[in-house]
Design a binder for these strands. Structure first.
Lengths: 358, 358
DNA sequence: GAAATCTCTGCAATCGATTGCATGAGTTTC
DNA sequence: GAAACTCATGCAATCGATTGCAGAGATTTC
């Protein structure tokens, strides 16, 4: 009769089934504690009334939100969105909702994070942001981490957090070694954004491979970048202005590699004819750009799945280890068309003077 | 002294400031109703105790979650992830959290949606999934939509929902007209997945443009697709086997266009030399693939922002119009390198027989 | 056959914030 | 100077589900 029919509560179900709310609650959460008859009556009552438990009330009582917070630097970036996809699926499979916080780095990120937790909206945090201020975070979390947290894609030495990451530094080393094995000696690097942990690890791997081969990582060949296509285009502009150019570039991620190749083309240079390029991540499009990109495949889906699973384990107390866990997943070199032998080796007798080392 | 220090509640603040919890609550939500002195004492108490309101308790009392649910077919798809980015920002700016539900289409989607709402976890829904069963949804929602809902990217004629969309059909017409204006007469189309509303609208626009120009949309030139790169590659395989090939293709989205171009190349065909290709969406990478893709730019960020804003308006009762609103944003043709005049027109006298129409 | 145990169910407190109503002090009005 | 009003605050009910405790009846144990 009323204009707005209220959503049914556990009271309505109890009344309909002629039992107390306590019994209804038990019938739904631990059916074995309720007699078969009663259980059947309650099921029927639930069906008829169309009852769904009120999550707010449940959260309030149980101090549990069945929700995790995923903090990302940029959802629009396909690298993260694929991971988010996997996270969402794992969480959904275990009955958790996923709340996303985008552009989490920046001044108030620590405060916002703290608010999310203290407000009991989420039970745990998956932190993907390499630029977030972890010092600040640690201060907020206090000594023994008071809330379940897993840092993904980053590793802060000695930080009391669980982490899941890929073997960035080793993978960068592999990528660089691939170029060296092709015969390249003059190799440059497009860096990631300053202050990002990944930037450091990938650069370190690059330097290690160079050093191991007795090659020099020239400062002017370390081009600035920012993990996006535009910065790759800009890097290409720097590149063509170099007096002595490298014959190969290891880019810190696929997007900057693709931007770089596109920029090369604008200046009449060919990849891999003039310059070999290796990327990092293996985005879906890496196989479809021209030339198809040689890159290190990061196990992104696995990363998301494992991180989400581990976080929920922590939340549910199945991993109560005081000592932080560090999980490392390994990457894989995918050789495609963007890398080849250096020009000098292809036609050693015809090396044009312009390309010869000064 | 205790091992685990409890999170402070409004009681703690009240005790510290020597007032009732009612006053604390009012000081925080409507400060003008509390005297300046008291307000200062309360602020101090909040600061000292480190109090943050418990969202579950607030939700329970106010029947409001300050959270919206975003249902997407595929977060991993950059098309959606950019929109999600905009949605998240708009929502955050207005104090709402964003819960994501991925792969929402499929058997239980209606039920899952209903559960989300009835459980009071979310206040409204942004539905992006063209494949979700809207009939089922309508049944669940009942006559006057009982929960705030905005359907994005889709339009169901006569459905009692607010919608935000781009002018798909008109944009497809424009894209096709661009090919016609370049001189193409034999034009094919890579379709989207069956059952998706967008597929139908884009195909309709294509047919309208063809008809208006007096051209035939041949059945064997309507290639199946699925909005992803792989289906574009497959479409290219179909394409090369055609007896009489089109000189231009309008692909239903950028990903299938890029996959198609990549597939062409594997068969030794050049774009735009042999075939011009127009995409749809203007993904970030469209400008960076080779050749740079001519495409219809969809105002994705605006779409997300406007949809989220409208949804929150509805939630907060600022738009109580019974009659559903339909907002349409317009797309823009971005001409790049993947379209050119047809081969026959470039060198009309030298048309190789193989390329001539049979 | 009394005691102990087990099974099923209900009572009522509890989670933490919000809000309608009431109250008392201070202020304005005529 | 009494009535009417305003302002700041407190009291206590309320939102809806969960759960410790207790009791009634049935069953097992010795």
């Amino acid at each position: 009769m009323s204009l707005v029919k209220k959503t049914p509560t556990i009271q309505d179900v109890a009344r309909f089934a002629n039992v107390s709310t306590a019994t209804v609650s038990r019938a739904l959460s631990s059916p074995e504690r309720v007699s078969e008859q009663t259980r059947a009556r309650i099921s029927e009552a639930v069906r008829v009334t169309g009852y769904t438990p009120n999550q707010s009330a449940r959260s309030l009582r149980q101090k549990t939100a069945r929700t995790i917070l995923v903090a990302l630097p940029d959802i629009g970036n396909p690298f993260f969105s694929v991971i988010l996809d996997a996270v969402e699926r794992e969480a959904a499979a275990r009955g958790y909702g996923v709340l996303v916080a985008n552009r989490f780095s920046g001044g108030d990120s620590g405060v916002r994070m703290r608010d999310y937790f203290m407000s009991n909206r989420v039970d745990g945090l998956l932190l993907f942001d390499g630029s977030v201020d972890l010092e600040q975070l640690m201060m907020l979390t206090g000594e023994p981490t008071p809330f379940p947290l897993i840092v993904v894609c980053e590793e802060i030495p000695n930080a009391p957090f669980h982490t899941v990451k890929t073997d960035n530094s080793y993978a960068a080393e592999q990528a660089t070694r691939h170029l060296i094995e092709l015969g390249h000696r003059r190799i440059g690097h497009i860096r990631g954004p300053d202050g990002n942990v990944l930037t450091g690890e990938r650069e370190a791997g690059f330097r290690r491979a160079m050093q191991a081969a007795g090659l020099e990582a020239r400062p002017e060949w370390m081009l600035p970048g920012a993990f996006d296509m535009d910065s790759g285009v800009v890097a290409a502009q720097h590149f063509v202005r170099l007096e002595a150019r490298p014959t190969a570039i290891f880019a810190a991620n696929d997007e900057s590699a693709i931007g770089f190749i596109s920029g090369l083309r604008q200046h009449g240079l060919d990849c891999p004819g003039d310059v070999s390029v290796v990327g990092f991540d293996d985005l879906a499009l890496a196989a479809h750009v021209w030339p198809p990109l040689t890159t290190m495949r990061q196990p992104r889906a696995a990363l998301g799945r494992i991180a989400a699973g581990a976080l929920i384990d922590v939340i549910e107390g199945e991993r109560h280890s005081r000592v932080p866990m560090h999980m490392v997943l390994s990457s894989e070199l995918i050789v495609r068309g963007s890398t080849a032998r250096p020009p000098a080796l292809v036609a050693p007798l015809a090396t044009p003077p312009a390309l010869a080392a000064r």
